[in-house]
Amino acid sequence: MRSQKKMRLIREIILYSVLTLFSVIFLVPLFWMISTSLKPESQVMTVPVQWLPKPPQWRNYIDAVKAFPFFRYFWNTSFLAILNVVGTLFSASLVAYSFSKLRWKGRNQLFYITIATMFIPSQVLIIPTYLIFSKLGWINTYLPLVVPAFCGGGAFNIFLLRQFFVSIPDELLEAARIDGASEFRIYSQIVLPLSKPVLFTVSIFTLLFSWNDFFGPLLYLHDPSKWTLAVGLRSFQQQYTTTWNLLMAASTLTALPLIIIYFIFQKSITSGFALSGSGK
């Protein structure tokens, strides 16, 4: 019995050492980003490694924000993210309601096509989609980055919401229908309030995706005043190739909103991810 206890202790020690080791490996890059962002230029990229800035130079953040139109880009990025969240929430839930609670000819076939498009290799869409937006005269506007969100918000979000709506009992809706409620009313006053957790997951994912998008803004926004943080940072980096401390300060500021959101809503973010992988 005693040797078994000892074995268990050894196993626990190994387990926690390995996990701690990996945690350190995972945290070091992030630590490095923040540490570099506070260093004077002379302490950046030194041999041997200078782990902590001596003394921390908070001015870097002011210099970084002044070196490129940070607040403008921050606003543009937030604006696009908010529009994407609003558009996706509204249109994806409407479509999911139609797929789960309304009956119409071709519904199941269309839903299967929707599932099939969830994992379309998107390379094949880039050029024609660009040409469509170009013919519409939407290049260098926010429309290509916003309108798709209002057109269903993507197959995956529709799928996620539809799966949730299916679990809402039909009797609940039937009762309201008998009372003469319209479908839109049932959708907005019965189904949506019951679906807050999944709507929230969809919002957070859309927000993360929009905030992190690099390809879309790169392709469609040519006027620097319309850029988002991702594209703006890229041009900042090209102008100041060696000022790593300022670049890391700007990078930290770009990442900060997402880190805050992550720590506040961690549970729904990770469980949403787990849900997305439950295609067993």
Binding site: L229, L233, Q237, A255, L258, I269, T270
Partner: peptide, 14 residues
């Protein structure tokens, strides 16, 4: 999980 939510461009600079 933390690195998953970080924006791609800053992560690449890092």
């Amino acid at each position: 999980f933390l690195p998953v939510v970080l924006p791609a461009v800053p992560v690449m600079f890092l």
